[in-house]
Amino acid sequence: MTAFLSRNKLLAFAAAFVALQVLLAVFAPIVGLQDPYAQVMVQRMKGPNLVNLLGTDQLGRDVLARILYGYRTSLTTCVIAVALALAAGGTLGMLAAYYRGWFDRVTMRIMDVLFAFPILLLAIGVIAVLGPSIWSAAIAIAIVYTPIFARLLRGPALVICESEYVNGARAIGASDARIIFLHLLPNLASVVLVQTSLLLSAAILVEASLSFLGLGAQPPIPSLGLMLSEGRNFLLLSPWPAMFAGFAILFLSFGFNLLGDALRDTLDPRLRTQE
């Protein structure tokens, strides 16, 4: 394990960077932070100081606490959304590759149509129907990413379905379920891992955008996108909340993207671009 990590320094760095942020989010309630909802009116819009390490916002709430709780909001929303999209899109893509024929054609046509919408626009359309809330944002992201997962997994699944060992399994009379769960799924694991990490990175930006536009998390929920849009109104008085919230979104999204990129190199050297 140590040897593996020292050979893959970038992967080790990316994994540690992501783990640190996830742990901070998970343990936010017990690391001795201030209450992210508590408003201290006399302490409004303070810069970083000893009491509030990252300063306070326009309502006198602790920015550090709101950012770590914002990580929780962001990660929960995006992990649920991407997991739903992976379950729906991955299943559709795999079944389309396995059964081919009309099922493949109809499914992928529907995915093509969903894919034709610009990502943020489709998400906004879904939220227009459901009404703005953090759950609507999660569902919107799940719907937007379903066709992406379907397309991403169908290609590699097709290759595996044509392989010798799947033909062999068919020849000895293995059931469809056995082939899908025992042969197809394990061999797709590395693609799934890489793409999930990359799409999580993108989903974090989409969720932040939606919350920034007022279509995702609603006040007073601690949310990074919301902090940016609120902080923007007080930018000249106190740029701190907006600045720190922006860095938080960047670090979170950057971490998952770097992790996906490094995983791709490590898990599948064939995919490595010539760089």
Binding site: L228, L235, A242, A245, G246, I249, S253, F254, N257, L258
Partner: peptide, 26 residues
């Protein structure tokens, strides 16, 4: 150079554009 290009490209992709806008306005 490899690492610099990779980190730079990923940073460019993951900087929230609306945040960059706000920072430049500021």
């Amino acid at each position: 150079a490899e690492v610099a290009v990779r980190i730079g490209a990923i940073a460019g992709l993951t900087i929230p554009s609306f945040w960059l806008g706000i920072v430049t306005i500021f």
